[in-house]
Design a protein around this nucleic acid. Structure first.
Length: 460
RNA sequence: UCCCCGGUAGCUCAAUCGGCAGAGCGGGUGGCUGUUAACCACUAGGUUCGAGGUUCAAGUCCUCGCCGGGGAGCCA
């Protein structure tokens, strides 16, 4: 075991004058006749550690061998830097090559295109941009657990293999051990009784249906795990495998749900802003200049709230404006959603009470009989980031809406049972983890916030 | 799935109306007394995505294919 000092410790906390041993990867190697400088990064923090090599102590070949990408272990003393770019540096007494790196190494100390970096997912975490994104990803994930834990929500783990396709949430990947070149048939149909689970099985497209029974026992719960969707959506915001947060809580109505969403989004943004300052600074400079404005819009004011019906009126009255009018009963287009968030309200806005006609059966029917108690949170620059609703707790209403939408009661029997015995008002929402990370990092393609993205037609 | 755009050196990109295929970075060699994606000089490096076609002449125009990107729909 190497007893090491991290770059983060060396830059922030280790006492000056102390001897240190620091392993890391060379980001740049600048040699002049009397002295050579290595920029060493170990991923523990955004910044590099400057290592100073006196050329009277190190020969030409040793210095040259520490080329960009090489894994080195530097021994030396932590000292105050006389240069302008950093306050501390290491005066080296030893340099060991742990992992040599020849000139075929694809990463250079220069800007690369995202498309090229996607072809080397195993190396791109060594770039400034991707190491920043993945540290931010960690911080965001941790902030989710902090938030719900502090509010008494329990972290639950619904199955990834399910029997239902969660109505309308998307195309499923089927899970089977049946041989594809000789599927067993019975009466001309596939004989699923001979499949692994003795029935059809899918990868989950949403954990919500399984979260509800847990919420109706534990009170407040949340899930945070992978979701799989087989939709052939070839866009910058869709992945076949992504992560979703789905809180669900008993005794919570739509107003409570909306308050929870707002507090949650603010907590995530606030934590990342507080803890990822260097990452945000870098990403603002090289990826998305509008990043500070995004944090401000999330953190510095309350979110707006309108009903779908009011939004349709606004879009109609805006008339000659950028977005087309919305006829009541139609789904808003992404252009209309962006118009509301960016121009009408200029901050995140909750749109509530959509028509029941294009929403799933489990959303609670309002007293008007034509809208449901749901909300989408629309953010400037991206559109929808959260979708939630109060769930239909009345057994008769739920069953009639399910049958209207043509669902098989046999599959959803247990879901109806929740309303049969001890039903309770409850609500929840879903938030796409990568979409949130894209918003907070400024990355423009979902493939660039996932370490190894799986998207339609591509598994690099 | 539909629509649009693109593919030139290892990488990032130029190349006028169809007329000798270039630069920066990276690599190699040499230089420089503290550099900040160091700098200076020299140098090597090309099946212009592939297959056809038009033309005296194609990176450039046409057809097909492959790959990549963006948008729409759908969603998270």
């Amino acid at each position: 075991m190497i007893r090491r000092t991290t770059v983060r410790e060396a830059l922030e906390s280790s006492p000056l004058g102390s001897p240190v041993t620091i392993p890391g990867w060379v980001r740049s190697n600048r040699a002049s006749s009397g002295v050579a400088f290595l920029a060493v990064n170990d991923g523990s923090t955004f910044g590099n550690l400057q290592v100073v090599l006196d050329r009277s102590l190190f020969d030409e070949a040793t210095i040259a061998s520490a080329s960009v990408g090489t894994c080195v272990e530097v021994a030396g003393t932590l000292v105050e830097s006389s240069g302008a770019g950093q306050s501390r540096e290491v005066k080296a007494s030893g340099l060991r090559i742990l992992g040599p790196c020849d000139q075929s190494y694809p990463l250079q100390p220069k800007r690369h295109g995202m498309e090229f970096l996607r072809t080397i997912p195993h190396l791109r975490p060594r770039t400034n941009t991707f190491s920043a994104v993945f540290r931010m990803r960690h911080r965001l994930a941790m902030s989710i657990h902090e938030f719900f834990d502090s509010r008494g929500f329990f972290y639950v783990h619904p199955p990834l293999v399910t029997s239902s396709d969660c109505e309308g949430a998307g195309e499923t990947f089927q899970v089977t051990t049946l041989p594809l070149d000789g599927v067993p048939l019975k009466d001309g149909e596939v004989d699923y009784s001979r499949d692994f689970f003795r029935r059809r099985a899918y990868l989950t497209v949403s954990a919500q249906l399984e979260a509800e029974p847990l919420a109706l026992a534990l009170g407040g719960v949340y899930t945070f795990g992978p979701i799989f969707r087989a939709e052939p959506s070839d866009t910058r915001v869709h992945a076949a495998e992504f992560w979703m947060i789905e809180p669900e809580a008993a005794f919570m109505d739509l107003d409570d749900d909306i308050a929870l969403i707002e507090a949650f989004v603010k907590h995530m943004a606030g934590t990342v802003r507080d803890r990822c300052g260097e990452e945000i600074e870098f990403l603002t400079k090289f990826v998305e200049p509008g990043l500070p404005g995004r944090y401000a819009s999330l953190l510095d004011s309350g979110f707006a709230r309108v009903t779908y019906t009011e939004a349709a009126r606004i879009l109609r009255d805006a008339g000659t404006g950028r977005a087309a009018p919305l006829e009541w009963g139609q789904k808003p287009s992404s252009e209309q959603e962006r118009f509301l968030a960016e121009e009408v309200f200029a901050r995140p806005v909750f749109v509530t009470d959509y028509p029941a006609s294009f929403k799933p059966f489990y959303m609670r029917l309002n007293d008007d009989g034509r809208t449901v108690a749901c909300t989408d949170l629309l953010a400037p620059g991206v559109g929808e980031i959260v979708g939630g609703s109060q769930r239909e707790e009345r057994r008769d209403v739920l069953e009639s809406r399910a049958s209207q939408q043509g669902l098989d009661p046999a599959i959803y029997g247990w879901y109806f049972d929740l309303r049969r015995w001890g039903s309770a008002p409850h609500s929840g929402f879903g938030l796409g983890f990568e979409r949130m990370l894209m918003y907070l990092s400024g990355m423009k393609n979902i493939r660039d916030v996932l370490p190894f993205p799986r998207t339609f037609g591509s598994m690099a």
